[in-house]
């Protein structure tokens, strides 16, 4: 039931994704601020399918000489492509330490095989745009899991967040964020097949309830 209703292709399913800032309050407790968060969901067949977005509307936001969104989508498989609009929660924490920014992401393989995957993050605008990580599957509870646990955010992202926080008005932050995108591409290391591709765009949250998001399937009608 999760196919078409959550971030999942026929090969790989995303369970969780978050980026957060963590600061010690005292030696035993930490304040944790989630900038963005996709929590676990358990969709059923009665849930509606995700809304779709025509991928041609956002191609230009994810350009690349080689391996950009258009080229990746043309290669397929088309059921592996998603768009996430994040409403980012502004932080009241005052980060001083660079090692307090983290990213977590959990996936599991829908196939009963132990693949090794490459996870790349293509940041725009940034030169060079790619941050690449290799992840190895672990067998847990009958599934092959990929757990990216407390991975430090790259220096570019941390500096970007610092600069954004110093803008005095929300519309200024949104204006900067309109030109900032991240493309997360998970590929099978051996076959180079695209397992999952998630295009992220951002806006500042106006909610008091924390980071929010919408997920869309990317299609070409």
């Amino acid at each position: 039931p999760w196919q078409g209703r959550s971030i999942a292709s026929s090969k790989l399913r995303m369970l969780e994704f978050s980026a957060f800032l963590e600061q010690p309050q005292d030696p035993e407790t930490f304040n944790k601020h989630l900038f963005v968060h996709i929590g676990q969901s358990n969709p059923s067949y009665s849930d509606p399918y995700l809304e779709s977005v025509d991928i041609r509307q956002i191609y230009d936001k994810f350009p690349e000489k080689k391996g950009g969104l258009k080229e990746l989508f043309d290669k397929g498989p088309h059921n592996a492509f998603f768009l996430v609009k994040f409403w980012v929660k502004n932080s009241t924490l005052n980060p001083l330490l660079f090692n307090s920014f983290h990213l977590e992401s959990h996936f599991y393989s829908c196939k009963a095989q132990s693949d090794t995957v490459h996870v790349s993050y293509i940041l725009r605008p940034h030169n060079p745009p790619q941050v690449m990580k290799t992840e190895y599957a672990r067998f847990e509870n009958g599934r092959y899991m990929f757990r990216i646990h407390r991975s430090p955010l790259c220096e570019y992202m941390i500096n970007f967040i610092h600069k954004l926080k110093h803008l005095p008005e929300k519309y200024m932050m949104n204006s900067v964020l309109e030109n900032f995108t991240i493309l997360q591409v998970v590929t099978n290391r051996d076959t180079l097949e695209t397992l999952l591709c998630v295009a992220y765009v951002f806006e500042v949250s106006t909610s008091e309830h924390g980071a929010q998001h919408h997920i869309y399937r990317l299609v070409k009608d």
């Binding site: 025509d54 509307q57 936001k61």
Partner: peptide
């Protein structure tokens, strides 16, 4: 040369793209 992009607001995107979800 820099290519001027179409603002997101002028693109064909679902209405929900501009509506921040409310906490349920």
């Amino acid at each position: 040369s820099a290519v001027e992009q179409v603002p997101m607001r002028k693109r064909q995107l679902p209405a929900s793209f501009w509506e921040e979800p409310k906490l349920t």
